[in-house]
Write a protein that binds this DNA or RNA. Structure first.
Length: 525
RNA sequence: GGCGGGGUAGCUCAGUUGGUUAGAGCAGCGGAAUCAUAAUCCGGAGGUCGGUGGUUCAAAUCCACUCCCCGCUACCA
């Protein structure tokens, strides 16, 4: 094993009763950027994603389509895997809750909770929403215009009355509140922790954690007539992948507890209340942080089939490319808040930030090196005040980036990098190296060197966000792959090597040009 | 109903220990430059800072009331 510090980060596992949508893609992109950032910053990262394949909703979708649950997931899960690959996600594992290792793990955590006296059998009766996979108190439900009883999410609920196993969630109220007090960053953004804490403060009821009326799930160990409530099963994936129940294994000892669960804001309660309670009960450490991201809206509207604004992540990538799409979502949407996207907004971002600001700066400076200096990166002379100022700004980027990443502020990292790129464009225009070529060649060399150095640091910081494109830019700058492309090489201590023969420059971030055919984000009725 | 967040330029937003002409990006207008991916740089323009009333020499920033949006939560039914 390595002596690097470790970092275990997960996405939520996706529910494959339908093909992946933009929200799944967003979560995967963001988590991948975090994982890559940490790797480049010297961490031994374990990045997990996967699919949550049990539960009544899968069963119902399968029935509606006239296939078995197994057939449904075997058809859909590969699309989630393909999406992760297409998004260039660097996940180290992809867990499916139908795997043997996960059965073993789920049964083990159940038995541990049972052994701790937190599971008991009782009769359950109440309102259950299949779509939300949640039980609601009658007071949370109401009758809609059609006379159908619906829950708080406006999904239909059904009266369920059956034998069920319960988890003594009520016993964990104080322990959870203590946890929130002890770890103020347990849930981010902070507003979300306040919401969770006030929910817990309001009192917790025991949780029904098994169902006897369906068979698509992991059997309860002591009673095979029951399967586990899908959330017990789903949440457990995070420890399964770390090797649970082999808590003495090297892997488990190394990676658990997870450093970060990245989830959507709709499932905060499950992750910030139920999950730590299950773990405390089972005698397993709780994760360190839950980060809840926002939702994405297409032109301000929630994506839905009825509005006809469903956007397939694959076609978005076909239209714009993987790296530009990754950049757009991570730059445009403050991480943790809801965000908007549209075809025009994506095109504008790509052209303004990537093609014009960064790409063009690289192209204009490097083509000067290629044409006027035989492609040899010049040696700098004595630095002027302007040189020192822009270099200092470049050196400071990693400092502020690390600071922003402490709370997963991905957009801030990019904001700061692009502020320096804008400075670099002003610097370049102000120094006018094309004029210096005739009047003061050594000075021209210094300006081009300084520009290349700023580009180098910017490109390395872009690696987590746009792995391929940033890598190409580093190729153009003559920065060899490997250790030279890590955060250890950022800041005052490292400078780009002068005298290097650079390859012929070519645009790394092409402008987006509107195709003749209709764009993918336009409504398809 | 309670708690919390928010209403600032055409768009997206930043901006509170109250204090010179309220900021950025994008869009738009004018100019410069022409090394570069028709990219870049500079400049003007653009806002009764949700509304009303107050505190103050001075309020986007503090107080009261009020309108609207969003989140969590409760209750009634």
């Amino acid at each position: 094993m390595t002596d690097k510090p470790r970092y275990y980060v997960t996405t939520a596992i996706s529910y494959p009763n339908a093909p992946p949508h933009i929200g799944h893609a967003y979560e995967a992109i963001a988590t991948d950027a975090i994982a890559r950032f940490k790797r480049l910053d010297g961490y031994d990262v374990f990045f997990l994603t996967g699919t949550d394949e049990h539960g009544q909703k899968i069963l119902q979708t399968a029935a509606r389509e006239g296939v078995t649950a197994q057939t449904l997931i075997d058809r859909n899960v590969p699309r989630f895997k393909a999406m992760a690959e297409r998004l260039n996600c660097s996940n180290d594992d992809f867990i499916r809750t139908t795997e043997q290792r996960h059965y073993r793990s789920s049964i083990a955590i159940w038995e541990a909770m049972e052994k701790n006296g937190d599971i008991y059998q009782d009769k359950y009766s109440g309102w259950y929403s299949v779509r939300d996979e949640a039980f609601y108190d009658e007071s949370e439900t109401r009758l809609n215009e059609q006379g159908v009883r619906i829950g708080p999410q406006n999904t239909p609920v059904e009266w369920v009355e059956e034998e069920s196993y319960f988890f003594k969630l009520s016993a964990y109220q104080q322990k959870l509140l203590d946890l929130y007090a002890r770890v103020p960053d347990f849930v981010l953004p902070k507003e979300r922790l306040n919401e969770v804490a006030s929910f817990v403060r309001g009192g917790l009821q025991d949780l029904s954690i098994s169902r006897a009326t369906l068979n698509w799930g992991i059997p309860v160990p002591s009673n095979n007539k029951h399967v586990m409530y899908v959330w017990v099963d789903a949440l457990t994936n995070y420890i399964t992948a770390a090797g649970y129940p082999d808590t003495n294994s090297e892997k488990f000892k190394r990676y658990w507890p997870a450093d970060l669960h990245v989830i959507g804001k709709d499932i905060v309660r499950f992750h910030a209340v139920y999950w730590p309670a299950f773990l405390m009960s089972a005698g397993v450490e709780v994760p360190r942080c839950i980060f809840s991201h926002g939702f994405l809206f297409n032109r301000g509207e929630k994506m839905s089939k009825s509005t006809g604004n469903v956007v397939d992540p694959f076609s978005l990538i076909d239209d714009f490319g993987v790296d530009p799409i990754r950049y757009f979502f991570l730059r445009e949407v403050p991480f943790g808040q809801d965000g908007n996207y549209s075809h025009e907004a994506i095109a504008t971002r790509i052209n303004a930030d990537l093609a014009n600001d960064l790409g063009n700066l690289a192209q204009r400076s490097l083509s000067m090196v290629a044409r006027q200096l035989d492609g040899i990166l010049p040696k700098p002379g004595i630095y002027s005040e302007n040189d020192k100022t822009i270099l200092a700004a470049a050196d400071a980027m990693i400092i502020s980036a690390r600071e922003a990443m402490k709370t997963q502020q991905l957009h801030q990292v990019l904001n700061q990098v692009w502020a320096v790129i804008a400075d670099a464009n002003r610097y370049f225009a102000g120094e006018a190296p094309w004029a210096l070529a005739k009047t003061d060649p050594p000075r021209q060399g210094t300006v081009l060197y300084v520009t290349a150095e700023v580009l180098r640091q910017a490109a390395i910081l872009c690696l987590p966000f746009m792995p391929t494109a940033a890598g190409k830019l580093l190729d153009l700058l003559g920065v060899p792959p490997g250790d030279e492309r890590t955060f250890a090489k950022l800041g005052v201590g490292s400078r780009i090597a002068a005298g290097t023969k650079l390859p012929a420059p070519s645009p790394v971030f092409p402008r987006y040009v509107e195709p003749e055919t209709s764009p993918a984000t336009s409504p398809t009725k």
